[in-house]
Simulated scan of single mutants.
Amino acid sequence: MTQNSPSEAWAARAAIAAAATTMVLWASAFVSIRSAAPHFSPGALALGRLLVGVAVLAVIMGLRREGLPPRAAWPGILISGLLWFGLYMVALNWGEEEVDAGTAALLIGIGPILIALLSGYLLKEGFPTRLLAGMAVSFGGAAVVGFATADSGDESSVMGVLLCLVAALGFAGGVVSQKYALKHATPLQATTFGTGVAAVATLPFAYQLVTQVADAPAQATLNMIYLGAFPTALAFTTWAYALSKLSAGNLSATTYAVPALAILISWIFLGEVPTLLAFLGGVLCLAGVAVSRSKPRSRPAQAEAPAESAAAAEATAAGEPTAPAAAGPEAEAGAGPPSGTRAATTSATAPASGSTAESGSAPAAGQR
């Protein structure tokens, strides 16, 4: 079994660290959205977040002196920018106004499953058993969290459910499209220009953003800036880096850690003590992620052929006589017939010559 080189091992650890950073920042976004959403419409909040993200990413691009992505990367960048950075954010913000947070989390939990299916078929990543099993466990945990955090006093509207499903579809399509883009562009390029595409697509909400920023409290505006700088600019870049190193299916499974981390962050910063059911759901989410990231035990390598057999095969191919395997009558018999018999055999198969030893030890050209 081959071992990874030190550089490959370092890249794998860096990808896992990048994915973990993304999950923590995305989980923190739920706390900030809760503060900002009452003061901004879904489209205005998405546009403000994207504009801040583009500004931060543009500065980083300038410092790193990265230019435009190659032409081959643009289809993936355009699609991921429209579906994920744009449609997903607007649909999710809008959907969460129509349904409770638990229902929204449950419906968005369909996204990683769709990513696994799409990447398995379109990206030829296959359908690993452990990945699918881990996603099933994590989705069950997300369902438990959704049930625990659902507001029994509110009825989820059909429009809200549809919007959350649209957000899940945008998430899945955007990730698969970004995977294609990362074959040609760097993670920073894919994130920066994908965010820019989404910002342009959401410009129709510019008037709402301007008027609502003027009326919103400072804390809500600061939370919107935080959403753009960290859960958008930084987290989407670390996500793109991890996606360039890992399969889309395996990476998407880690997003099931977000509900558990969001519960923990709300507990620490907002003092919202989770219910026992929500805690158990979070544990299930993390357990499913662990299963999906686990690797099957490697089977022992098959025993190699004995050295003697390999040497004998090489000697036969080279036309050299092989050494007897063991002493005894069988070995003597295998060493060859007496010289007289050898000569008789040679004379029956080829004209007599003085080189009977060669004709008895080397195969004919046709046998080679």
Rank of each mutant, 00 (worst) to 15 (best):
T149F: 03
A143K: 13
Y226Q: 05
L47V: 14
C164M: 09
A362R: 08
K124C: 12
P300E: 04
Q219S: 15
P75K: 02
V145Y: 10
T238N: 05
S294P: 01
L222C: 05
H39S: 14
P338C: 05
T22M: 11
M61K: 07
W267D: 03
V145E: 03
A301Y: 09
E320C: 10
D215Y: 06
P337C: 13
D151H: 13
G249R: 08
E97Y: 08
Y241R: 08
A240G: 08
L114G: 01
E66A: 05
R65P: 03
P351I: 04
E125V: 10
T275W: 02
A317S: 10
L92H: 00
I263S: 01
L131G: 03
G228H: 03
V213P: 10
L114Q: 03
G109S: 10
I263K: 04
V161S: 02
A257W: 06
V291G: 07
S80Y: 04
P300Q: 08
E332W: 14
V99P: 00
A312I: 13
A318F: 15
P324Q: 15
A248L: 04
A181S: 08
G43T: 06
R64W: 15
G76M: 08
F40P: 03
G67S: 07
L57M: 12
F205Q: 01
V161Y: 00
H39C: 07
P70D: 11
V90D: 02
A105N: 02
L188I: 12
W10C: 11
A105K: 00
A242G: 02
S359N: 11
G160T: 12
A229S: 02
R13S: 03
A14N: 05
S266F: 05
Q178G: 05
A311S: 07
S298M: 11
S353H: 06
Q212I: 08
D154M: 09
V197A: 00
D154Q: 14
P351K: 00
R71I: 11
L132E: 07
M89W: 06
S294R: 08
V31E: 12
N223T: 13
L277A: 13
R368D: 03
A20Y: 13
G366P: 11
P42E: 00
L87I: 14
G141P: 00
G354T: 15
M89V: 11
A343N: 09
G43F: 07
G173H: 06
G174L: 01
T192I: 06
T103G: 00
G126H: 08
L169S: 10
A352K: 12
T237E: 08
Q302W: 14
R49H: 13
A348D: 04
